[in-house]
Amino acid sequence: MPTSEQVFTITRTLNARRELVWRAWTEEKELANWLPSTPLETISFDVREGGRYRYTMVNSETGEEYPTGGVFLEVVPFERLVFTWGYPDAPIENSPVVTLTLTAHGDRTEMIFHLRGLAGHPGDQYVYDGWSDALDTIVKKYT
């Protein structure tokens, strides 16, 4: 279940060194190997603070395209990647934010994925943050 700060959190221990996990998240040709139905030519990642990324999932049956993208807000190599997650050119203030944290445990890596703020008012920190906090507790109570 969600914690009090995030809409949801997924924690996984991956059987790979942290450098490999980082590459899998930040290098275009590696991303193409695990993002579902995402052709390499649609992937563009400018991994630095303020840099943009985009990729497009393609439904192989209908040919329908689902572009996704955002801006890197924080890049700490091998450790931490914070990025907005939405439509490729959506304004930063209005987008959900993903925080990816990698911690090395020998040859394994703990990956924590937080997704926060699925909706809110642009530029209104209170609403943005408060909303997702409240949602978590509300959701907990009613389900």
Binding site: F8, L115, L118
Partner: peptide, 22 residues
């Protein structure tokens, strides 16, 4: 919200498999 979580969980299964290959 759960539907979003499921989407990411599936992706991470795929990431896990790919990391083995790497």
């Amino acid at each position: 919200l759960e539907s979003y979580r499921r989407i990411w969980e599936e992706r991470f299964d795929s990431l896990d498999d790919y990391l083995k290959e790497m």
